[in-house]
Amino acid sequence: MTGGRGRGAGPGAMRWVSSLRRPIARAAGSVGSLSWRRGAPEPSCQDVAAALPLILEGGSEAASVTIAHVQGCLACQAELARYRKVVRLLHQLQATEIEPPPGVVAGVLSSLEAAASRHMIRSLLTGRRVAYGTAVLAAGGAATGLVALARTRSRVPGGLGSGVLAGGTVGPARTAGQA
């Protein structure tokens, strides 16, 4: 894939090439859309290497120049085969079983337990805070109410204190009139 090209490897090679043709043909259009236009120079092996993901993932139509290059270049065919093999092996990994080492689940469960305990304590504290807050508010409200009540009573005629003033036993105005 570093630029070398090997053509004419025999009929067997052509059969193998034909097995590659389908994905290349599907994708070569998008490969072509990246770098090549009709009449442009043939792509190099490096150009094809950069386009390998597109070749694998498929495109809309074939760019004959790319197909021709890969079909005629055993280095690119080999590169494509290796690339595909890597992707295939990666796909196979999903089916590979991985046993969690001992202690993973236990660690998760104990951390959950700790988190739940913290949550419970926090809820408890939050509840207490709410209770304290409510109590303070209630006390404040009661005090305010008492003060308001006292003031209201002090303004009512005949109420506490008003009778003394009305009776004229004290007060500078009354004293002045008598004089």
Binding site: G4, G6, A9, G10, G12, A13, W16, L74, A75, Q77, A78, A81, R82, K85
Partner: peptide, 13 residues
């Protein structure tokens, strides 16, 4: 070895 499915000697890299 990379291309074990291909006929031997047809990938002269």
């Amino acid at each position: 070895l990379d291309l074990t499915s291909t006929p031997a000697g047809r990938v002269p890299l």
